[in-house]
Nucleic acid binder design. Structure first.
Length: 776
RNA sequence: GGGCGAUUAGCUCAGCUGGUUAGAGCGUCACAUUGACAUUGUGGAGGUCACAGGUUCGAGUCCCGUAUCGCCCACCA
């Protein structure tokens, strides 16, 4: 019998400790069961979760638990992403230093220390939420550790050996603030207001040509003037030359479809490099490039008097200069979709640096076929990924000019400069170490110098599913567990984490990386706005968890919104979750008061009715869980246990269970108690993945010494489903009698006469009479 | 410009392959209730299911537009 009058979140801690100590939830690679692997998204060490972010991780735990109940050996790894830009940026901020001005070794040490210091917060939240994952052992990993980085490097070496890597110096996205080239997937677009400046260029004959540009500071880098081939206004200019304002250089006037007639004056200034289109067109037309912006993002000597200014300052200055010149016509404010670095939101420039590239353009079609083999939840996001794949138009730049990342494992011959790669399987740091002893260049030389660059963080992140399934670590396990069963992630990193994982896995293994991809929405605040630091509307999970407990929080996550939608935080709905737990607790407490007298029982029609309702609920929950849709089971269970089981069945058989006046036989009484307990037992199992604590607590009090979480999911059974047709009538009859009593000012337990029980409900007559105290 | 999704009670959302008077939670109003329920129960009010057409015996549910919002993609300098 349950003694505690109320479910208290404080019970959770003890239960969690027990789970962690138990062997039941630790992944056993030697298992005979089928393996289900979950690719936990590695939280960045400096991550701050809001309730939405935390909620996403509680889903992982729900998935792990339901799959265990389905008989799988489940691997839910735990991990921390500590590589690359996010960490470095946070160290630069904290220590108020610049990475490129700090000795590499010192910077690396600071970053490693920083990662240790701040790493634990999200893990504490996960534990508080009841997430039982691999917090230690072979399936706990940190992406900056040698055991992880060496796998990243191995994949690089293998891809190199397949001929998929090359080095090239071509203009690419360059973040001035981060001091490195970045990939297309690391670019975001922001609408920024900017000046569209109209200027007069001049033809050789002195004829004025009005041209609009948003990048006047690049006048000196102008390579040509373009007009659209269809544009009648400018056809006469073909082959002529134009003189650039302020710089006086002459450039050709050419026709090209990338110039749009409708924009500005229809004449376009082509510079190296104002945007990605400029890059493509200049390469296509084989025009000379003039680079006016240096690596620090300042104007170079070639820009003349603007040398040393930042891009934005140079723009201001040159607009002033133009305004006081004869060339200026007018300027207007326009909204310009500006590419910015997704980490630091700095405007991206286009600079040519020698970088390593991984081929991806030629894999687009194969990848689309691979995507077809993966099940998406919800399926809409598949299109999202396909859109991105379709938009890929150049290879992935994978080298970064940063310090705290996985080193590119390449040395170069001092003599002939040829690159040399070591064998895969070790962790290499070419910037400080000599190559292995067996290193020898094709030319016979043994003198090498190391590459100083690191990888794009996504090179590390895109192998998480390989790492956890045991790639290059546990060959037998890998054989059994690849492809990874499930990737769960946010929609904002479809183009990066998901795409790159699929790309690399396909290149290495020619197989899809995952069976299922589960995309969850963003956390939004009560007004539906995305939670973000800058808006200041972050709701932290810890206080919420302290107040309501993990189960209420998890139930809220599950019941709040359907798969893939954003979920918004609401205090009211958290209260509602908590009320449901209270209801469940009291329901259980009540049922726990009854004991059967002996073993004999004889099920009555009302018992069979609730069993049929239970069966229907099991079926619905099963369908929801199969699709990793927790919204369905959460709401079905709540509806069933509250509106059917507690409100109607329990009321119906209460008297029979007490049987104080021996109105019923022992067998009839026992049947009520038996049914109450059986329905509760299965309901608890249904709810266990979503609310692991309260179900466990009740389970241990009432049904078993062993955890509910090692039970199998309830099976559907043969029940008398024709009884389901009576549910509506039964509920209406009860409501009607309650209503009548209410209207007459009677207590619910007072006697009532002249109640006509409809024929089809006569089978419940005995229970009904007792329930409503109906007398003849 | 293209794609995807959304638009259902005051608020947040369910409504699968079209079928009788459109649902839930919260809120609101009224009443009842002290032995499972720091509450619960019952009842009421509240919706021309974004707008305009079409298919059909019959449409939130299918088709075609339009509008608004959100997200993704795209070479508007």
């Amino acid at each position: 019998m349950i003694k505690e009058k109320r479910w208290k979140p404080e019970f959770e801690r003890e239960l969690f400790d027990k789970w962690i100590k138990s062997k039941n939830f630790k992944f056993n690679p030697e298992t005979k069961k089928d393996i289900f692997t979950v690719d936990t998204p590695p939280p960045t060490a400096n991550a701050k979760w809001h309730v939405g972010g935390a909620g996403a991780y509680s889903f992982l735990d729900m998935i792990a638990r339901i799959q265990r109940m389905r008989g799988f050996e489940v691997l839910l790894p735990w991990c921390s992403d500590r590589n690359g830009l996010p960490m470095e940026v946070s160290v630069e901020k904290h220590h108020k230093i610049k990475m490129h001005e700090t000795p590499r070794k010192e910077f690396i040490e600071l970053t490693a220390q920083w990662a240790e210091k701040i790493g634990g917060e999200v893990t504490n939240i996960a534990k508080k939420m009841g997430v039982v994952a691999e917090y230690d052992g072979d399936f706990y990993y940190e992406t900056d550790k040698p055991y992880y980085r060496k796998i990243t490097q191995s994949t690089f070496i293998e891809l190199w050996n397949k001929g998929l890597i090359y080095e090239d110096t071509k203009p690419n996205n360059y973040c001035i603030s981060c001091g490195t080239t970045i990939a297309d997937a690391e670019i975001e677009y922001e609408d920024k207001s900017t000046d569209l400046v109209y200027l007069n260029f001049e033809t050789e004959e002195g004829k004025k040509l009005e041209i609009a540009t948003t990048r006047p500071e690049l006048l000196g880098a102008c390579a040509a003037i373009l007009y659209n081939p269809e544009d009648e206004r400018y056809k006469n200019l073909e082959g002529k030359k134009a003189k650039i304002p302020l710089y006086n250089d002459e450039v050709p006037i050419l026709s090209h479809p990338s110039a749009k007639q409708e924009f500005g004056t229809g004449l376009m200034m082509l510079c190296s490099y104002g945007d990605y289109n400029d890059i493509r067109t200049i390469m296509e037309l084989n025009l000379p490039e003039k680079i006016l912006i240096d690596k620090e993002g300042n104007m170079s000597e070639k820009s003349g008097k603007y040398n040393g200014l930042t891009v934005l300052d140079a723009r201001k200055k040159i607009i002033e200069d133009l305004k006081s010149s004869e060339f200026f016509v007018k300027s207007e404010k326009i909204n310009h979709r500006t590419p910015v670095c997704w980490r630091c939101k700095t405007n991206v420039e286009f600079v040519a640096m020698p970088e390593y590239y991984l081929k991806q353009v030629k894999f687009k079609e194969s990848l689309k076929k691979i995507v077809d083999k993966i099940k998406f939840h919800p399926k809409e996001y598949k299109q999202n990924l396909l859109d991105w794949i379709n938009s890929v138009s150049r290879d992935w730049v994978i080298s970064r000019r940063r310090y705290y990342g996985t080193e590119i494992p390449v040395w170069y011959c001092e003599g002939c400069k040829k690159p040399w790669l070591p064998k895969p399987g070790e962790y290499y740091q070419p910037w400080k170490d000599s190559p292995p002893e067996y290193a020898i260049c094709e030319c016979g030389s043994k003198e090498f110098y190391g590459d100083e660059r690191t990888f794009d963080t996504w090179m590390d992140s895109s192998i998480t599913e390989l790492f956890i399934t045991g790639y290059k670590r546990f060959p037998e396990l890998f054989e059994r567990s690849f492809p990874c069963s499930l990737r769960n992630q946010g929609k904002d990193i479809i183009r990066s984490w998901l795409y790159y994982s699929l790309l690399k896995t396909y290149q290495l293994l020619e197989a899809p990386a995952f069976e299922h991809v589960f995309i969850n929405g963003h956390g939004v605040d009560e007004d539906g706005k995305k939670m973000s630091k800058s808006v200041g509307n972050i709701i932290e999970p810890m206080p919420v968890l302290e107040k309501y407990g993990a189960d209420a929080f998890r139930f809220w996550c599950a019941s709040e919104t359907s798969v893939g939608n954003d979920f918004r935080y609401s205090e009211e709905r958290m209260d509602a979750s908590q009320k449901f737990l209270t209801k469940l607790w009291n329901l259980s407490r009540f049922i726990s008061m009854f004991e059967m007298e002996g073993e004999d029982f004889e099920l009555q029609e009302s018992d069979k009715w609730i069993l049929a309702e239970l069966n229907r609920t099991i079926k619905k929950c099963d369908e929801g869980y199969k699709n990793f849709n927790f919204f369905i089971p959460a709401n079905e269970i709540k509806n069933f246990s509250w509106n059917f089981f507690a409100d109607h069945y329990l009321e119906l058989v209460k008297s029979r269970a007490y049987n104080r006046d021996n109105f019923f036989s022992i067998k009839e009484k026992n049947a009520a108690i038996k049914t109450l307990r059986m329905v509760l037992k299965k309901t608890l199992k249904l709810l266990a993945p979503i609310c692991p604590f309260i179900t466990e607590k009740i389970w241990l009090e009432m049904f078993s010494k062993d955890s509910i979480h090692i039970e199998l999911f309830p099976q559907e059974e043969n029940t008398e489903n024709s009884l389901l047709n009576l549910s509506k009538d039964l509920i209406e009859l009860n409501s009607g009698i309650w209503k009548t009593k209410k209207e007459k000012g009677m207590g619910l337990n007072s006697e009532i006469k002249n109640v006509e029980i409809p024929d089809e409900l006569k089978i419940f007559e005995k229970d009904l009479k007792k329930m409503h105290n109906i007398i003849e």
